[in-house]
Structure formats: structure tokens, C-alpha cells
Amino acid sequence: MEPKPTALKILDIAAILLLLAALYMVFIYAPMEATMGNVQRVFYFHIATAWVGMMSFIVALVAGVAYLSTSDRKWDIIGVAGIEVGLVFLFITIVSGSIWARPAWNTWWTWDPRLVTTTVMELVYIAYFMLRQGIEDPDRRARFGAIYAILGASSVPLTFFSIRIWRTIHPVVVGSGNPDSQGTFDMSDPMRAAFFFSIFTFTVIGIDLIWHRIRLGRFADKVERLKMKVMI
């Protein structure tokens, strides 16, 4: 594996420092929400991880389009990195949302449009890796992966707009409020600051992890090529 670039080292340190600052903002700077209590603090990272998950899937979409137009393997590696990181963060979103829902909605899970579309999105991208596992030829695998990543990306806007299209109890944080939502709250200025800072922090963490995963993908590709050479 090539030595770690200085920019990535700086990004690693920045991600750790930003995470510490975000924890300060969430636990000390932002006040406790009066109706839900301390569990509302989970919301800052819940939204931030959802944002990173969706952003990573958009990265995979762009990489998919780029692969189909160039057939350059590097785009396949970027696509895989985007989807893996997106899956991890979206899983965190689903589980942390369920934990928040227990005291806010009095249930761990309900068949709400937002919860369903998010879970479907997670399953769609888990199936991406199952598809790849079933194809041995690397070029064919990359081509099918790219097409799947493009098609799978349709679940991203569907999930994002689900709380705006359908009647749902999930709160709408950005944009107009939903009269049917339960567990919604007005953000004070310190809460808003903690919210946007968390989004920024997790964006940096997401980019950092995608970069690390791309490097791992390149390394795996190099080992795979050497393996093919030695075997022949």
C-alpha cells in the first residue's frame, strides 16, 4: 500500500478534533430539550449520519456513471467505497432513530414511510454487495455494480422526500413542519449551531473514511492482480 498522503493525515486529525468539538456542542453547549429530555441529543448525530449515508450513495452514483463512460477501474473502487461507508452510516441512523423513537413515540419501530424507505435503501445497498459477490469477472462485476449503483440511487431522493410526500409521524427538520409529526421541537440558536456543526463534522468523517476505503480498495486490487500473475 502506498504511504498515507499528508492531506489524509491532516484529515484524520481534523476528523478526531471535530468529533471532540461536536461532542462538546451536543452535550454542553446545546441545552437539554424540555419535552424529550436528554435523548433528543441523539438527534444531532442521527441526522448527521443520515446525511453522510445519502452523500456516500450519491458519490457511488457519480462513480457509477463515470465508470460506465470511462471503464476505468478506479471509479469502481470509489463506488464500492461510497456504498460501504454509506451502509455503515445509514445503519447508525436506523438504530439511533429507533432508540430515539422508544421514548418519543413509545415504540422501537413503526411502519412509517420514512422508516420503511430508509430500511429499503439499506437493503438495496446490502444487495449491491451480494450482487458483486456473485460475479467473478472483475470488469463484468464493475459494470453490473455501476448500473446497480445508478438504479439504487433512486432510493435516496425517495427516502429524503418521503416525509414531505406521505403522511408521516417522522419530524421534518429541514423545511416546513409536518402537522402529524410526533417528537418535533423548535431549535434554539445553540441547538441549531450544534446541529449544523454535527453535520459538518460527520461530512469530514465521511470523506475521511471514504478516502481510507478507496486506498484499501486500490491495495486489494493490486494484491488481486499479483495473485492472478502468480497463479498463471
Partner: peptide, 21 residues
Amino acid sequence: PTTPDTTGYMILGFAVIFTVM
């Protein structure tokens, strides 16, 4: 109404976030 004590859920939420990462 008085604010409910939901600290346990908060701890569980952050534990999941950091464990998965």
C-alpha cells in the same frame, strides 16, 4: 409537564453510534 429522564436512551444511542463506527 416535567422533563422525562431519558438519559439511558441517550447513552444507548451514543454507544451504538460509536460502537458501529
